[in-house]
Design a protein around this nucleic acid. Structure first.
Ligand SMILES: Nc1ncnc2c1ncn2[C@H]1C[C@H](O)[C@@H](COP(=O)(O)OP(=O)(O)OP(=O)(O)O)O1
Ligand SMILES: Nc1ncnc2c1ncn2[C@H]1C[C@H](O)[C@@H](COP(=O)(O)OP(=O)(O)OP(=O)(O)O)O1
Ligand SMILES: [Mg+2]
Ligand SMILES: [Mg+2]
Lengths: 470, 470
DNA sequence: GCACAGACT
DNA sequence: TACTAGTCTGTGC
DNA sequence: TACCAGAAC
DNA sequence: TACTGTTCTGGTA
């Protein structure tokens, strides 16, 4: 039960005529429904953001990239127009059979949960500085905010928002420097608990865990009610799944039990982390659980249910952007004619069209997701999920001084090498990434015969592709 | 009705103990059932081939490549072993639904034909030198045979067989140099006729044509029986397909009429080319028509039928190698445990396995083909089918003389440039292809910003990637 | 493999 | 004044 | 893009 | 003695 902030954000009034161009407003997506309080004073927030961003190089870049997306989408639409009847019919047929097949194989016997800390970095910092509890807090700096507490969010402060804009939105905003060691330690505490419920648990990030509770729920149902996962923990790691299940635990029964278990997990995590709250989603697969985790945020949980009806009525009205993997661009590519964002049901109803616009893989993936099916008609990667890349980058004030740039590169390579050594990692491909003062990104890379790891090797490799050929 | 050859090939007797190793015999595929008379004296033929090839560099290369294939296949099998239950079940499900969907959408309203000249080059040469008619004839040289007439085939002489082996198999074999201009002219004559029946006809090669007869058959059914496509020809090129159909012409009725029409086409072609015979396949799509075209060769035609039963009973017993796109390697990859080649029905029954071994696209393609479905769940490429590459290569006696090699390259580039100019073609990527004396193939290429076409440009580009980096 | 864009936290 | 850092995926060439 | 292998005629 | 020439496709890095 959050206390109300000392000074309140301005009350929401429809903002009238404004100076900042609508195009500029349209590209900034901070003020959307994600997280925090919704719709208190959307107009004011947009106004301030647009005002401050208006003539920046960053805005120019966003507009440019937006135009490119527009062009691409227009091209796709043209392609659609040109596509012949046969192709369209065939696409529709493919979709129809995929839908039928997916529906036919809906299973109600698996239970997945996604657990995500609330305002993670901020929560940790506030826990350690209780006087901040009712103040608007941002973790990050004047350059960039990593996250903000729910108080600050009422002013429109958001993750991935530059600090100075956050400050403009909320004069009293308190900035706190991030302390990753602390977050890592907290994450480890939580994961130890998660593993008691699913030893194969995986982590999506420091603050996010994916648990397959199926086995645990069957154990609990078998061994009788009551709490605690304690002595079960050793049993799960061995052979295949569900060897000892036996109980017919499906659908809503699964959901009910899962709700209790997840509540228990969250309570234990809160206890073990001295008060940090989490939110959770529960569902028949990780995709749905992940989407569900957002529904009762903060400090709540939501279960999608298992039936076709439950799942579809949950998904259908959601904005497509809620679907993991659908970002700014895909949202635009699948927007309605008037530019308004689509809901998931429209993704479904226009799936045949998507089949003509995207690669088979992308179209499949989109369709499966809009039906609430997680990825992995394929291998599902039973393996250990080895790390594939490691990087170190720094943004600095523009300079053309080659000596200075070289020195920066050297330092980056040194840091990277250190980290790689610590984690016993080496790599075959070294990528040099450059950002220009107008935010254009360039990469150049070079692959070595044998993996490299030493700072000097990294640096040498990084520079190689700059000496061009042809 | 072919006359019998003056001297006959040796009668077939099971060849007993032999000098040449079985491994060597196994890799030479000349003596299989494709084309010509089958099984007269398979053992003898294999014996001679193996004897002559035994210790050549070419054989070494084949064996090596064969071992590589074996390894790959073994790896795939291991992968199969390791794949978990879930993956296997999911693959089976995918296959089941694909099969169901494909079966559901079988259509009986299209009629395709593939028409292919018999022993094409040889037939043209023999037509122009009638005294060769009952002699064994090979078109090509002592190095390589492009094709042989049916007389020569009784001795085991085949396309892609080196001339000296052909000669060993058949002492009287007459070699004729190819004359591509003649073959092109003949092809044009035939195509003019084909286009009367399907203006959108496409050519698979000089001697092979793909005709969609659907529209023509409907016209003919509408306008009453009788022969001749003449005045119809102008009607087809306009808008979409079947605008004026109206007649309910499907399945076996379609097949019967198609048989007549294809007979008429083949007669007209024979007439127009002064006696050249063709064989044809008729079926509900080009894949089946193509396979069917081989059944009644030479000078015959075959129709697969349209019903599921007809199609499957036609396909099921065929060796997989009959399926276009399935070659030596895929045949081996899908062979039975004992190494014997599979039939198409086994492709089907082990389709789930294939799904785990190959990429989704390859697995799909294999499955569709084994059900008698042509490719193109996708776009089907309505476009004009622009040429994508052009090349000029020559095999010569091994040399390390760089000046000589350079001069050869110069000449090749000159020829190529000439051809490109004549056809108004240019290209963005120039590939240098090299073959070593032990038949290893290497390519090196380089892409230019703008397309090139001049001999000097080609040559310069070709040499570029030889000056290596790193 | 290389370059780039997109996505997520 | 000021618009991150780290990891992964997909696509096209 | 670059390289390789397979396939077809 | 001698084992092609042309085009396309797909996979992998
Ligand atoms: N754009 C970003 N850049 C850098 N760090 C980020 C960014 N977004 C999120 N993070 C970090 C800070 C967050 O506390 C942590 C977890 O992210 P996330 O779960 O999305 O938000 P959150 O935990 O801060 O709030 P919520 O209550 O919405 O979950 O990851
Ligand atoms: N491997 C090859 N190398 C070069 N040219 C070839 C090769 N195979 C075939 N050709 C040429 C010569 C053929 O006459 C022509 C048509 O091939 P194809 O239809 O397969 O055989 P064919 O027409 O000679 O005999 P048939 O069709 O009666 O079996 O293409
Ligand atoms: Mg969170
Ligand atoms: Mg032929």
């Amino acid at each position: 039960m959050p206390r109300s902030p000392s000074p309140s954000p301005p009350a929401g009034q429809p903002s009238t005529a404004s100076d900042a161009g609508d195009a500029v407003k349209a590209i900034y997506v901070f003020a959307n429904e994600k997280g925090g309080m919704t719709d208190i004073n959307r107009g004011k927030i947009n106004e301030i953001i647009a005002q401050l961003s208006q003539s920046s190089a960053y805005t120019a870049k966003l507009l440019k990239s937006d135009r490119r997306v527009d062009e691409t989408v227009a091209l796709l639409q043209q392609k659609l127009q040109r596509s012949d009847e046969g192709a369209r019919r065939s696409a529709a047929a493919v979709v129809a059979r995929q839908v039928a097949a997916l529906e036919a194989s809906r299973r109600a016997d698996r239970c997945c949960a996604v657990i995500d800390f609330d305002m993670f970095y901020a929560a940790v910092e506030i826990r350690d500085r209780p006087e901040l509890a009712d103040k608007p807090v941002a973790v990050g700096g004047i350059g960039m905010i990593s996250t903000a507490n729910y108080v600050a969010r009422r002013w429109g402060v958001r993750s991935a928002m530059p600090g100075f804009i956050g400050q403009a939105l909320c004069r009293q905003l308190v900035f706190v420097r991030p302390d990753f060691a602390k977050y890592t330690a907290v994450a480890e505490v939580a994961r130890a608990i998660f593993r008691e419920y699913d030893p194969k648990m995986t982590a999506g990030s420091l603050d996010e865990a994916y648990l397959d509770l199926t086995d645990h729920l069957h154990k609990r149902a078998r061994d009788g009610g009551g709490g605690g996962a304690g002595d079960d923990s050793g049993d799960c790691d061995g052979g295949g799944e569900g060897e000892r299940r036996g109980t017919a635990l499906t659908g809503e029964a699964l959901g009910e039990l899962a709700g209790e278990v997840v509540g228990e997990i969250r309570a234990r995590v809160k206890e073990a982390t001295r008060g940090l709250t989490t939110s959770a989603g529960i569902g028949p697969n990780f995709l749905l659980a992940k989407i569900a985790a957002d529904v009762r945020k903060p400090d709540g949980q939501f279960c999608t249910g298992w039936s076709r009806e439950a799942v579809l009525s949950f998904l259908a009205p959601l904005p497509v952007r809620k679907v993991p993997g659908v970002g700014r661009v895909m949202e635009k590519a699948r927007a309605r004619k008037d530019g308004a964002a689509s809901a998931v049901c429209e993704l479904l109803s226009r799936a045949a069209e998507a089949r003509l616009l995207f690669t088979p893989g992308s179209a499949d993936s989109l369709l499966r997701k809009s039906l609430g099916w997680e990825e992995g008609g394929r291998e599902e990667a039973a393996g250990e999920a080895l790390q594939k890349g490691i990087s170190c980058e720094r943004t600095f004030r523009p300079t053309g001084d080659e000596a200075e740039l070289g020195e920066t590169l050297r330092r980056l390579c040194a840091s990277l090498a250190e980290e790689m050594a610590a984690r016993q990692l080496r790599g075959r491909t070294v990528t040099l990434k450059m950002k220009t003062s107008d935010f254009d990104l360039l990469t150049r890379d070079s692959s070595a015969a044998r993996p490299v790891g030493a700072a000097e090797e990294l640096q040498a490799r990084a520079v190689m592709p700059l000496t061009v050929a042809d």
